[in-house]
Nucleic acid binder design. Structure first.
Lengths: 198, 198
DNA sequence: CCTCCTTTAGTCAGTCCTGACTATCCAGGA
DNA sequence: TCCTGGATAGTCAGGACTGACTAAAGGAGG
């Protein structure tokens, strides 16, 4: 049904998108990713960047254009996007937007094991999370406000607004959860079922 | 500051948690993970399950207990958790709950490239997402309702409630986004800035 | 009784990815 | 003048992960 991507790493999508603009060498791509703030949406290291470009080359989505060496610097290979690459960006982008993917946040795993902790301990750690979330929300709001003040159009900030929406939803969820855990019924039933442990 | 886990894969946490209960062989662990619905929070394959158990053994968090072979079946190695393992579960769980981790949803990457699509195309694909999200929400609600009807306590359904909260937040976000993209101002400014492309 | 499908149980080749490393240039302080 | 730190640019060993494979037993259907 759903054909597997030749280079499934989302970093590859960002790379292709930048190469749509103009040919570049890997290090320059890294700089753009960082300056545009896309490193907040994509987990990568410099090595994985080189790896992904190699994979994209094998897949035929990009092609090395030239190897320049100016002023005794290490030589840099400039890559350009191919027609297949252009097609891949468009197709991949449509798919990512249209089809929600099952995501696997670490927090969900931890929640599924919440019953292992004594109620008061659970309340304590979740309160710490709530405070940390509040901090993240504040940071993101500041980032967005500053960018807006610099004249950045809203369409280039949607991803931050999305993060914000998720953070706020999580914070509401955690707050409610703490309230539920504080109910004396919970402490009682936890004692009854989990009393026998180390 | 934050010490790296010896076995960072979240599957390892779930494995340790099950072994807290009683010693088991890998295949049995796989069955429990599936039956308890934890396969909805953790991405894994059977091979990664064996890999992770091997890593846990090397890390000293679990230890092979015995190799049984009943009725000519392939032999199964039963693993038990160690004291280090017990400590690791507790410590890891607390950390995961208390500290929000930067997550990297694919959708956020796609959103950061939304401006590449013509406005009407963007609206079209996001509407499809919205419909798909509605389906997911419905499914999750059903799962929760059925479990509750079977007498499952709410604490064992928190992870589903969390998924639900995120799905609903995302749906609200997408709905609002579609409205913004439909504004004629957007179509106009997109034409102006992106008119020059293939 | 034969065949085919499903379940049980695990292995393995090859790719992917990360962390650590190499090496050069330039600016600024001591 | 020398030393240090940071930016530039990239490589590489080794471990982690996936998809495809092996293999035996049980049950259903003809």
């Amino acid at each position: 049904m759903e054909r597997r991507r030749k280079v499934p790493n989302p970093l590859a999508l960002a790379v292709l998108a930048w190469l749509l603009w103009e040919p570049m060498h890997p290090y320059e791509l890294g700089r753009r990713l960082k300056q545009s703030g896309q490193d907040r949406q994509i987990r990568y290291t410099r090595s994985s960047l080189y790896m992904v470009i190699e994979q994209l080359t094998r897949a035929g989505f990009v092609a090395p254009q030239e190897t320049v060496r100016d002023s005794a610097r290490p030589e840099r290979t400039v890559y350009a996007i191919t027609d297949d690459g252009r097609h891949e960006v468009h197709d991949w982008l449509r798919t990512l937007l249209a089809q929600p993917r099952q995501e696997y946040p670490h927090f969900a795993v931890a929640l599924s094991l919440l019953s292992l902790l004594p109620p008061d301990e659970a309340v304590e750690v979740l309160r710490r999370r709530s405070a940390a979330l509040a901090g993240r929300i504040e940071e993101t709001r500041t980032t967005v406000a500053e960018a807006r003040a610099d004249g950045v159009a809203w369409i280039f900030l949607v991803e931050e607004e999305y993060s914000l929406a998720l953070l706020e939803a999580e914070r509401r969820f955690v707050t409610d959860l703490v309230e539920s855990l504080k109910q004396p019924d919970y402490a009682k039933s936890w004692q009854e079922t989990m009393g026998d442990r180390t």
